[in-house]
Simulated assay, not measured.
Amino acid sequence: MRELLTRLETTTRLDPLSDRMQRSVMSLLRGQRIRDILHGVWLGHPLHPALVQLPIGAWFSAAVLDLLPNQRRAATVLLGVGTVSALPAAVAGANDWASQSREQRRVGLVHALANSTGLLLFSGSLAARLTGRHGVGRLLSMLGLAAAGGGAYLGGHLAYKQAAGVNHGVPELNLIEDGWHPIADLATLPEATLLTRQLNDVSVVVYRDGDEITVMLERCAHQSGPLGQGEVVRVDGKTCVVCPWHGSTFQLGGGEVVHGPAGTDQQVLPTRVIGGVLEARLP
């Protein structure tokens, strides 16, 4: 299985189709607001993995009820709930997929194919049950559950092996030692200028706005883009930094994500000034 997934990650045969589909998704979901909603910016957490719980739970529960007597109606209701709720989950997943790296999109494409196959089988099962063919409906449900299970396995590979959708900045916290660490002399920090400094072996950005000073992990939460090379902008009256790679936007005051594709906040470090020296530590 590991060898198969490695081949899937490295094959280039899927790239032409993947690139065309990426352009299509980006074209259909052009509005920044709708994309932010689908990324889970408002939630502070990727939305797709939260949405998939409902269809998977409903489909699996329907399969259990299929094994029990006198549960046809309940199983059919659950099957319908799972099938309908899979649609917004698929849209959110497509939105996330379009902003991923090429290697992640290769696996994500097969992940989507498996889940789409499962959705078609569950839809067929629902149609069969509603027309009284419950035996066929149960068979199609079991096949759909197998396809969705394969898709879920690939989704786990995307998250845990390829780090799709996770906060790429947070692991760097493990490289910072406990205690306060000097960052820079306060007198040397210019106003409204994004600077890059080192804290142990971790790169951080420093931004001064009057008496307010932000020290933030420099590697973007989305795909480790260099925020130190980003642009400082104002969004809804808040000073923010925009990642130069994919446009994820974070408030410089508290690290809150304002625009995706990042779905989680950027980590900000506590600061203090001692003897004219700016210091920072682990949260």
Rank of each mutant, 00 (worst) to 15 (best):
G144P: 05
A63Q: 00
A127S: 10
L145K: 08
G149R: 06
S141D: 05
L130S: 12
A146M: 13
R72Q: 07
L109M: 13
A146W: 13
G80C: 03
P55M: 12
P69L: 13
L51F: 08
S125N: 07
N70K: 07
S101T: 15
L113I: 07
A90S: 11
L139K: 13
R106H: 14
G93A: 14
G149T: 07
G57Q: 05
G57A: 11
R72M: 07
S123A: 15
G82A: 09
G150M: 15
V64L: 13
G118I: 04
L68A: 15
T131H: 15
A62W: 03
L139Q: 09
H134P: 07
L120N: 04
D96L: 04
G135V: 09
L109S: 05
T83C: 12
L120C: 09
L67S: 09
Q71H: 11
L139S: 13
G150I: 12
Q100P: 00
F122C: 01
H134V: 10
S141N: 14
P88K: 15
T83E: 05
A63S: 04
V84N: 06
V110S: 01
L145Y: 07
Q100H: 08
A74H: 03
V81P: 00
A86C: 05
L79C: 06
A98T: 01
R72H: 09
D66A: 15
R129M: 12
